[in-house]
Computed example of a mutant assay.
Amino acid sequence: MDARFDIVVVGAGMAGASLAARLGKQARVLVIEAEESPGYHATGRSAAFWTESYGGPQVKPLTTASGPELHRLGVLTPRGALTIGRTGQERDIAAFAQTYGGVGIAVERLDRAEIAARIPDLKPEWTCGVLEPSTCDIDVAALHQHYLATARKAGVALWCRAGLAAATRVSGGWALTLADGRRIGCDMLVNAAGAWADPVARKAGVEPLGIAPFRRTIAQVAIEPVAPDSLPLVLDVAGGFYFKPESGRLWLSPHDETPSSPCDAAPEEIDVALAIDRFEQVVDRPVLRVEHRWAGLRSFAPDRLPVYGFDPQDGAFFWFAGQGGFGIQTAPAAAVLGAGLLLGKVMGEVDPEPFGPGRFLGR
């Protein structure tokens, strides 16, 4: 055996890096990553915003609790979010405002004139909306590098090009074989593998939870006149699109969720075309050209809530996965919660009970 650790974390994206940063001073931790560098998949392909309503009311406590650390680290820039609806969708907008205002998010109902003042050249059928002033852009790369640097300073080892090939349960923990041939041991195995969470569980002989990857497409486009930097993040109340400005360009998405196998996701032309079409139904500013396009995988458990905790059938296997599209904006609070569970300590202000893997007993 080449080495032994207290905890081995599978995956060096935002989830694995943030958790390792919390654990490093209190345990011997190794993070293993299949790719040549950390954050290649979902972390490196985020739309990069922090908004308290994203992910739903049950995810909101994680997002809100993450806000202070994200502000302290200087990775948030005020943006504001505007969820809009067409004529006939007033009830949907009212329900959105009531739901999220009811869980403590500052929201403001806007009429047609107030929306048009914030979205230049808005088409006339868009008449109702809800503003979330607290929404910010996130510097995802800076946040990820912060966690990697903090983990490294705390003594955490990071091995890239070292995916998990096999995991065997032994007395006192695990015997692991890595893709590069190294064999290591650990007391606890943490599954922070994102889209690969269920395959990692299978390798460890743990029953998968049904965490499924879905492709999300984003395109960077040029429009005329250019997108003003004051434009908020704009979202469709029906879930058909979102867009936001980026250095004079526009990032837009058709809010697609296409089932996928775990892979290096690539955008489909039809999804890029759909994003453009939906944008041009909102704003009378035609897209001149597509400058860049990409896709990432968002992974959801069956109930669309993240999964944090020890597997109920194996107390040495820890789930830290299923974080959908909100894993970056909830990273600080999720890492505190996960580290507390792993170390048997009460940490943070978020109740872990709704996120425990035991909710899938009998699956």
Rank of each mutant, 00 (worst) to 15 (best):
A116W: 03
T87L: 04
G194D: 03
A97M: 00
G85Y: 02
A149K: 12
A162Y: 02
G181W: 13
G88A: 06
W196C: 04
L122W: 09
G185W: 04
L122F: 11
S134C: 01
E114V: 03
W196D: 03
A193T: 07
D137K: 07
V190G: 07
A97Q: 02
I115W: 04
W174P: 09
K123C: 00
L158R: 06
A175W: 07
P133W: 07
G173W: 08
T177A: 14
K153Y: 01
L189W: 09
A106C: 02
A192M: 02
H144M: 03
R91M: 05
Q145N: 12
A154D: 06
A97W: 02
G155E: 07
D111E: 13
P133H: 10
A154C: 00
S134D: 09
R169P: 09
E90W: 05
T177Q: 15
C128Q: 03
E114Q: 15
E114N: 12
I105D: 01
H144E: 05
P124K: 09
I93H: 03
V170Y: 10
V170R: 14
A157R: 14
V170E: 15
Q98C: 00
N191P: 08
G85L: 02
A192Y: 06
Y147K: 08
L164A: 04
V107A: 02
Q98P: 00
A179F: 09
K153I: 08
A97S: 07
R109S: 12
A142P: 04
A179D: 15
S171W: 03
C186S: 11
A154G: 04
